[in-house]
């Protein structure tokens, strides 16, 4: 019984249910600070409260599913692409203001390209050059967006 409970709660549906209960918790936490009102004159909290209730309902159904299918495990697959892509985006966000678009894009390209193994430095350099040029042509020259390719702290 306990084995099954542990298996069920870490199964695909079990973790899915957990996620929905977390969403429900976040929703009710927020709703608690809002006026509910009544059906004829709804406050800002009324509709979200219904959504929170639906999360609970679907979470319960998934829990039942988990109990019936405890052996359905989640499959993580390769973590490298996920980590590198997300790291690249964080790096872009951090570098853009500091060092300008060109360097931020170069960092994003290099980090995300390394999600795939076995790239030569030459390939990376070529890729960076092409993408930076492409962005400059499309977004700065053609579309005239305010994209600072170079650091701004030197100019102002």
């Amino acid at each position: 019984m306990l084995d099954r409970l542990i298996a069920a709660s870490t199964s695909r549906s079990g973790l899915g249910a957990l996620l929905l209960f977390i969403f429900a918790g976040i929703t009710f936490k927020e709703v608690s600070g809002l006026r509910l009102g009544n059906p004829g004159a709804m406050g800002p909290g009324y509709f979200p409260a219904i959504l929170g209730g639906l999360f609970v309902l679907f979470g319960i159904i998934l829990s039942v599913e988990a109990w019936a299918n405890p052996q359905d495990r989640i499959y993580f697959g390769r973590m490298r692409p996920v980590v590198m892509l997300l790291a690249g985006i964080i790096l872009f966000g951090l570098l853009y203001r500091l060092l300008g678009g060109a360097i931020a894009i170069a960092a994003l390209v290099v980090v995300s390209a390394l999600a795939e193994r076995g790239r030569s430095p030459r390939e990376l350099a070529g890729l960076v050059a092409v993408v930076v040029l492409l962005v400059w042509l499309i977004f700065v020259v053609a579309l005239d967006l305010q994209l600072n390719m170079l650091p701004t702290w030197g100019t102002s």
Partner: peptide, 23 residues
């Protein structure tokens, strides 16, 4: 695809940023 996706990713990021120039 290995040459294509870094470029796609950059377009995604710049595209998102350019809507209201917001990090």
């Amino acid at each position: 695809y290995r040459l294509l996706y870094p470029a796609i990713l950059v377009l995604v990021v710049i595209g998102t940023y350019s809507i209201r120039y917001s990090i």
